[in-house]
Simulated assay, not measured.
Amino acid sequence: MTTTTTDDVAPVRFDTKIAVLLRDDLQPWQRLNVTAFLVSGLGTAVPEVVGEPYADGDGTAYLPMFRQPVLVFEGAKEVLTAAHGRALSRSLPVAVFTSDLFATGNDRDNRAAVRALGRDRLDLVGMAVHGPRNAVDKVLKGARMHP
């Protein structure tokens, strides 16, 4: 018999937030692609956001995933630019995706495309950020939840 304590049923509240901010003029396939690329950066740079591996009832092993929800937001180009600046000024871990990356086909060319421009000239179409809930909320000021 399994017993359930109050701690087992209490809602889990995280001190941190994982958020993706997408430019609101992207095509649906672009939104999905950008989101997938962006969160992969957070998982490698901030290993504490990744939980334990999964296994089903038959013992089949599965890869670990984030231990907390990923919230997806959208906003105009100006909202994204401002959020990027706020995230950098708070020294939060940030992943970026620029419009140039839609024309490249590999990681080497992706990195070269970002490196070719100064931070103020990046044509951002998405960013992911992780940090304390309050700080991430301030970074995302002006963005709205993705529908």
Rank of each mutant, 00 (worst) to 15 (best):
T5S: 15
T6Q: 15
D8L: 06
V9G: 01
A10W: 10
P11F: 06
V12E: 13
D15L: 06
K17H: 07
K17R: 15
I18N: 07
I18S: 04
A19D: 11
V20M: 05
L21H: 05
L22E: 01
L22Q: 01
D24R: 02
L26K: 06
L26G: 07
R31D: 10
R31P: 05
L32M: 14
L32Y: 11
T35G: 07
L38W: 12
G41V: 01
L42Q: 01
L42K: 02
T44L: 11
T44I: 10
A45E: 06
P47M: 01
E48S: 08
V50Q: 00
V50F: 01
V50R: 00
G51Y: 05
E52S: 13
Y54T: 04
A55R: 15
A55I: 02
D56H: 09
D56G: 09
G57H: 12
G59T: 04
T60N: 13
Y62P: 08
Y62R: 04
Y62Q: 04
Y62M: 13
M65I: 15
F66T: 08
F66G: 05
R67Y: 01
R67P: 00
P69M: 04
L71Q: 07
L71N: 05
V72W: 03
F73S: 02
F73G: 03
E74C: 07
G75A: 00
A76L: 07
A76S: 13
A76G: 12
A76C: 07
E78G: 07
V79D: 04
T81N: 09
T81M: 03
A82E: 15
A82V: 13
A83P: 09
H84A: 13
R86D: 10
R86N: 07
S91I: 03
S91K: 13
L92R: 01
V94C: 02
V94M: 07
V94H: 00
A95F: 09
A95C: 13
F97A: 14
S99G: 11
S99V: 12
S99I: 08
S99C: 01
D100I: 09
L101G: 00
N106R: 06
D109K: 06
A112G: 00
A112I: 04
A113D: 03
R115F: 08
A116F: 05
D120R: 14
D120S: 15
R121F: 03
R121T: 03
R121K: 14
L122Q: 07
L122V: 05
D123H: 10
G126A: 07
G126V: 06
G126P: 08
V129N: 10
V129F: 03
H130G: 03
H130M: 08
G131Q: 02
R133Y: 08
R133Q: 12
N134I: 11
N134F: 15
V136L: 05
V136Q: 03
D137R: 14
K138M: 14
K138G: 14
L140P: 08
K141G: 11
R144L: 08
P147Y: 11
